[in-house]
């Protein structure tokens, strides 16, 4: 069970002066149970790639395969694929339209033609999964809650379809640090407790570093490199070449090492760094 792409290319506005090759020969595999991060600077093709993964756009060339089914024009298959691969768009709060939060979350399951009982159950479950108190939020208007809450409602709207894969496009764009942490915390919990396969798109290494098992780095529509966060950070120069930074803590460690600190190179969290630096300081004092 996996999502797989084979040499996909995607071209926008073919045959006009605006022609853009947004994806060029991309091969990725996302296995069930993984937590994958896709990063790349703006315009590198991240949003395009994930839209191909659930059949919203069809590849100009190449193959996309979801759990063994090739994504094509067949409507029935497409519907199934869109249910299997849940996609949360950039700024998903702009898709809200119902009078109440509960009704809005129910929109997805309703389209699956489920029984009313099942729909209600899923709505409650989804809203609780993103950290809401169901009773309190269900009758609120989706236009009168805060930005971060709207975002979580939109995510619940996708979760209510019970996808096997959850893809989120910059889920924290435009949120304050508190809202960001809240969303990341919920996503992490989703992955750990419900065993969702999660794909997280971002242009910030900082955000992704602590969460994901594997990072795919896109640049100009091509896969620049991929590997575990630690492997990726070791190539800081390479990342800077494609206008991506490394997390602050990783660059502090790098600078310290340059100045003769004998500490481990592959540090991602502040906690790790603290332990390492303290160890080194003690060693020096001896």
């Amino acid at each position: 069970m996996s999502i797989r792409t084979e040499n996909i290319k995607y071209v926008y506005s073919e045959g006009t002066p605006f022609r853009t090759l947004a994806l060029d020969d991309v091969n990725v595999t996302i296995d069930q149970g993984e937590f994958v991060g896709i990063i790349g600077h703006t315009g590198s093709g991240k949003s395009t790639l994930i839209q191909l993964l659930n059949g919203l756009e069809l590849a100009t060339e190449g193959i996309v395969e979801v759990d063994g089914t090739i994504v094509g024009k067949d409507k029935k298959k497409l519907k199934l694929i869109r249910q299997t691969v849940g996609l949360v768009f950039q700024y998903p709060e702009y898709q809200l339209f119902e009078e109440t939060v509960a009704k809005d979350v129910a929109f997805g399951p309703m389209n699956l033609a489920l029984s009313q009982k099942e729909i209600d159950f899923r709505v409650k479950e989804a809203l609780e999964l993103v950290g809401f108190n169901y009773k309190k939020i269900k009758d609120a208007s989706p236009f009168e809650i805060s930005g971060g809450q709207k975002r979580r409602v939109a995510i619940a709207g996708v979760l209510a379809m019970k996808p096997d894969y959850l893809i989120l496009d910059e889920p924290t764009a435009g949120l304050d640090p508190a809202g960001r942490n809240e969303i990341f915390h919920q996503i992490k919990k989703l992955h750990e407790s419900s065993n969702f396969t999660v794909v997280l798109v971002s242009h910030s290494m900082e955000d992704i570093a602590k969460l994901v098992d594997r990072v795919i780095v896109l640049s100009k529509g091509k896969i620049h490199m991929q590997g575990s966060p630690k492997e990726i950070y070791l190539q800081a120069e390479e990342l800077e070449k494609i206008s991506l930074g490394i997390p602050q803590i990783a660059s502090i460690v790098r600078e310290l090492r340059k100045r003769g600190f004998n500490i481990r190179q592959d540090i991602l969290t502040i906690e790790e760094a603290k332990t390492e630096i303290l160890k080194e300081v003690r060693r020096r004092n001896v």
Partner: peptide, 19 residues
């Protein structure tokens, strides 16, 4: 552009605009 974006978002929630 906005229309297309929203359509896509709703399509990923199973909406059907074509039939």
């Amino acid at each position: 552009e906005e229309t297309e974006k929203i359509m896509k978002a709703q399509k990923s929630r199973g909406a059907d605009f074509e039939s």
